[in-house]
Amino acid sequence: MVNSLWFKWKGLRLPWRKSFLVGQDLAGNTFWEFKDQLNAGRYRRIVKFDPKTHYGDVKVTPQWHQWLRYVRPTPPTIEEQRQDLVRQAQMKELARLADERWASKPSFLDKPKTQHQTPGIGAEPATTNANSGPVPVSADAPSSSTQAPQPDPTSTPPKTRKEENPWAKADRQVPGGNYQPEAWSPTSKR
């Protein structure tokens, strides 16, 4: 009660006062306005904090910072500051949930756990009919000519033309083009 009376008394804009209390934040910092000595038509705005607090430890909320920099004309209320704390807590919870969802997904940077076998060049993907099982093929039935021949897995793939190195020709034309330095081995000097 004494604090609220003191705040009300300091907040009164009496003509003999040099500075007026505008409000305080939830951390206990007080915000003041005073008449500028050089420009009497303008008020300057400052924050006063506990003198035992180091300058680096002073935290000013965005709403009060906006008021200090003349971005907003009216100072924030205590209720507005409390709602901002609730909003910050909700944002932290949403960020935590998003981090959990992100961590649960596999990363492209991790090693794959299983290697997928890719079918060969002539291999067709196996298709099965969901209604019926595999179709038996009788030995008496002639083979249809529409089936593609299956490649023999034991045979080697056809050899392709060897790619020629374009720099090899240039190295042969330049004297010393194929020079390679010898390996260095340390020897003791006597």
Rank of each mutant, 00 (worst) to 15 (best):
G41F: 10
V2P: 04
S107L: 13
P76R: 08
L68R: 00
A123G: 03
D50S: 08
W9Q: 09
G177N: 04
W67L: 06
A89R: 11
N129Y: 05
V174R: 10
Q117N: 08
G28S: 02
G56P: 01
F31C: 02
S155K: 14
L5C: 13
R72K: 07
T53C: 01
P112S: 09
A89V: 09
G176F: 07
H116C: 14
D57Q: 06
E164H: 13
A123R: 07
T154Q: 04
D84S: 07
R44E: 11
P125D: 06
T53S: 01
S138Y: 05
A148R: 06
K52A: 10
P186I: 12
E100K: 01
E163A: 13
A27H: 03
G56L: 06
R45D: 02
P153E: 09
Q63H: 02
S185A: 09
R190S: 05
V58N: 01
Q115M: 12
R45I: 05
A95N: 05
A183T: 10
S138E: 10
S144N: 04
I46A: 06
Q147L: 15
A130Q: 04
L14F: 06
V174I: 12
M91P: 00
N129M: 11
L94P: 00
A170T: 05
R42K: 13
R87S: 11
Q147A: 12
W64N: 00
Q115S: 08
T53Q: 10
K10H: 06
K159C: 03
V86E: 12
Q66P: 04
D36K: 03
S144I: 02
A148M: 05
W67Y: 14
K162C: 07
Y179F: 14
K162N: 11
